[in-house]
Write a protein that binds this DNA or RNA. Structure first.
Lengths: 169, 169, 169, 169
DNA sequence: TTTT
DNA sequence: TTTT
């Protein structure tokens, strides 16, 4: 049940290969960065401008496995999910916040896929009605260490022992 | 699994009370018409203009029960779903097509709810995964034979024995 | 101004080449059919099933020109728009209804594009804030009569040479 | 023009009254925090759980004025926009990142509005293209120096001279 | 009628 | 047919 709507829709390209890790429960957690960009002409100078926005996307469980297996750097992908802002502690002990998109649906958009998988992973209605009992997002109880983060590209030395470490975006 | 994305998001008001029917399986099917409107000023005359769009929305199973129970004429509601165009035969034997939104999520937006339900009703993963098994036999009072559509302009006589029968918009 | 939300998001492939026509004003009107599909396994037999949904999409003005120029049969495309159900009269004089997606944004998703156009046509906020006086929906010079309407509500009989002819979906 | 899609749809309630500031250009900038929540039953214990997510939303220009004028603490609102992650420097000189939703459309969802405005405020084409030029100088009473963010845990002293300044979430 |  |  939800009070409110929290929905994100992205189409973009992966900045790097996905990184998959596993929760103690065995569930996959795949992190990805996705670029979307806007371009326009400066209204004064007429110069073309571009701005790229980078999004952190995290896929859990089955979606995490699929994302980890079929996506790669440069892949174009459709992602639907919801926003989640996590609080974490910097090395200096201060609170930091990182906002991510927790994916609930993913669909590959390049045909060059090659994987034979070809495509998508739906979360549509038909699934609910006709598919076997859902396994999406089934969290495991026994998880302990915080699960869902990934490793920043340029990771500061000295605390990579933690799965939920303190690097922001 | 999906090839492509087929997603609709609506916020509007019900034109009438919902109509609920039941499939042979016992699953609820609730039909609703939703109004959305646009208003603008005519760019030449400056006259205010308005256009109302009517949408046919259908809710199945658990969502069908909830919609049938909590929505009523005038209710403001958020609906997420997908487009489906059904083919049916007019009395004249000709093919007709009706496009509906098959809801996968619904959320009530008026606080005056009154029902005690308090508001929204998500159709998120959590519901499907963790909610109790669908209570399929809970019947609504207003149900009867009426075809699942609203106001067929020219309603074919005598074949309401079919769940997915042939009434147009 | 809008009362309510009427939003559609599609990713699919064109069933045929687009068809472009022009309004008296000179504005382009491009029609396209888009396929989205769902596949799943039958819950009883385990047989793979597939259902393809066909969507009618219409692009106006500048978007109509771009769609007409860059899309072709088979193109994969992202479309955002709103639902509009048009009433029209069949040859038999009876009312028919056709539901279309009026596109407000389009983005090509296949790299094989080749057109050099590279992609999309956004309607994002940045445009509003930073771009020169809006260029979205840039109407064509030759326009004279008010542009953005199409399809007279009640179509005069006997003019199928007109872009609003009477073939349904 | 956009390469990719960056879209957010939220329905939630304001955590506090909006805060409006003005850019040197006179354009309004209104900041708001929006709560969305999910509730579910723990699948093991059956205990009801709830998680509230807080979103930072920023409205510019005309939308900024409307948001500042009509929204208030507790207001239920529909927001559509795009994600933007801003980089800023903490007091310690370190980089921080804040992710916000830059609204492109807003619609009020409570009827108790009272404002006489009656409700929604679209951001559709028609508005932008046909509405009168933005009335940029209409100032809001509640504006003042307050930084555009809400409740910074550790708010840097003394630099509110900057529009895009450095308060985290 | 598309696509995989 | 709704709503403001």
């Amino acid at each position: 049940m939800a009070r409110g709507i929290n929905k994100v829709i992205l189409i973009g390209n992966l900045g790097q290969d996905p990184e998959t890790r596993y929760m103690p429960s065995g569930g996959a957690v795949t992190n990805v960065t996705l670029a979307t960009s806007e371009s326009w002409k400066d209204k004064n100078t007429g110069q073309p401008q571009e701005r790229t926005e980078w999004h952190r996307v995290v896929f859990f469980n089955r979606l995490g496995e699929i994302a980890g297996e079929y996506l790669k750097k440069g892949s174009k992908v459709y992602v639907e999910g919801s926003l989640r802002t996590r609080k974490w502690q910097g090395q200096d002990g201060q609170d930091r916040y990182t906002t991510e998109i927790v994916a609930s649906e993913m669909q590959m958009l390049d045909s060059r896929g090659g994987s034979g998988m070809g495509g998508g992973m739906g979360g549509g209605m038909d699934d609910y009605n006709q598919a076997p009992p859902q396994q999406q997002q089934r969290r495991q109880p026994q998880q302990s260490a915080p699960p869902q983060q990934n490793q920043p590209p340029q990771q500061p030395a000295g605390n990579f022992d933690d799965f939920d470490d303190d690097i922001p975006f």
